[in-house]
């Protein structure tokens, strides 16, 4: 289901430049004004939804990306 190397690289185990800098790709992110890519997401109870279901539910939707750390 998942590429094990990708899983390991994305979920890096230490905050060192050679492991986290590869993910700083904001300059390559989707353009404003163009249809954005859609992805499955999961609620904390395990139920699945789509990002498109989230953004289509409101006039505008604010999505903050982050984690506990």
């Amino acid at each position: 289901m998942h590429d094990e190397k990708l899983l390991t690289q994305y979920n890096y185990d230490e905050f060192v430049p050679e492991k986290f800098m590869r993910w700083m790709r904001f300059a390559e992110s989707p353009q404003l004004g163009e249809r954005a890519p859609d992805f499955p997401l999961w609620y904390l109870d395990g139920s699945e939804t789509l990002l498109s279901e989230i953004w289509s539910a409101s006039l505008y939707t604010v999505v903050e990306f982050g984690s506990f750390t």
Binding site: L32, D38, S56, L59
Partner: peptide, 8 residues
């Protein structure tokens, strides 16, 4: 921020 049409 996305609008309802999925446009960022």
């Amino acid at each position: 921020i996305f609008n309802r049409a999925g446009i960022p």
